[in-house]
Amino acid sequence: MKQWKKFIAVFAASIGMGLLSATPALAAADPKPAASAKDIVLQGDAQCTRCHDEADGPQLLAIGKTKHGTNADNRTPSCTSCHGESASHKDFKGSGKPPKPAITFGKTTANQASERSGACLTCHQKDATRSHWAGSTHETKDVACSSCHTVHAAKDKARDKRTQTEVCFTCHKEQRAQVNRPSHHPIMEGKVACSDCHNPHGSVAPKLMKRNSTNETCYQCHMEKRGPFVHNHEPVGEDCSNCHNPHGTTAEFLLKARVPFLCHQCHTPHGGFIPQLVGSQTPAILAGQAVSGLGKGTTNVTQGRACMNCHTQVHGSNNPANTNPTPQFMLR
């Protein structure tokens, strides 16, 4: 509680200071030197673009098409903001291959991931969505910002729903195979992106889930499952991923295994029967089946919606009725 009060006090003071000094952000930013006449894209880029011009590397100039290329925003970088002053590279006079810039971001970089990300975080660590980058799974696995983001491109694949998966699947191969299974979120259709559920920049939830927990993330779109209900199904409230694999399954409803086999991992069965299908029952079993109905066993628990043929309210029921059969068993 003391920690909480301390945060409140610090935050309130911070807001006060912020508002007192409230002036347009651009005016408050440090003024940058006036653009050189030889600059092509970024302020002060002439020292680089005298060689790396539209003929040498037109793709490099594409940074001008992006937010980084907005010169009216004095916070935007120059080449050296990210690549370092790189004197040995700039001043190279020899005939061979010049030394690399101080910081490079390609596959053959010699810079540690922390150095590469540091170049970005100098400015971007202020974003609240990146507050938990330090210590996050990606950070500790040497994933740098440039591992996913392309700065010198008009369109960054990581920031477009339709292309983001290409970036994530560079490492997450198993999910690439799963998203094409028949039960899936509309990921490959471009309607749901990995970042709709995950915050790759770090979060407090397991698996870099975007919100505070797996369930809270799922409730963004499936809020009807939140309840609370009169009759709750505890594993549902504990973690949706107890039963579902959101990346795609062959079993319906994104279930990790087909019902009844999923249910039988926790629940005692209704009776002694072997799962069986219409059209494939032994004559003896067929003959022995009650004329009044198949009851809770045989094909009724194996086919259709299996256990959920009767236990329809697996996410919880808000039915208060006390009439037999009571809704306790998620029947209605």
């Binding site: 009044s292 109905g293 198949l294 009851g295 009724n300 259709g304 043929n309 009767c310 059969p325 029947l331």
Partner: peptide, 25 residues
């Protein structure tokens, strides 16, 4: 879906023929 298999304290065959329906989904 909707289904129920008659429990003995809820519904029963009573005087109905043996072919009557005890459960339905």
């Amino acid at each position: 879906g909707r289904g129920y298999d008659c429990a003995g304290y809820v519904c029963s065959q009573g005087a109905l023929p043996a072919t009557s329906v005890k459960n339905a989904i």
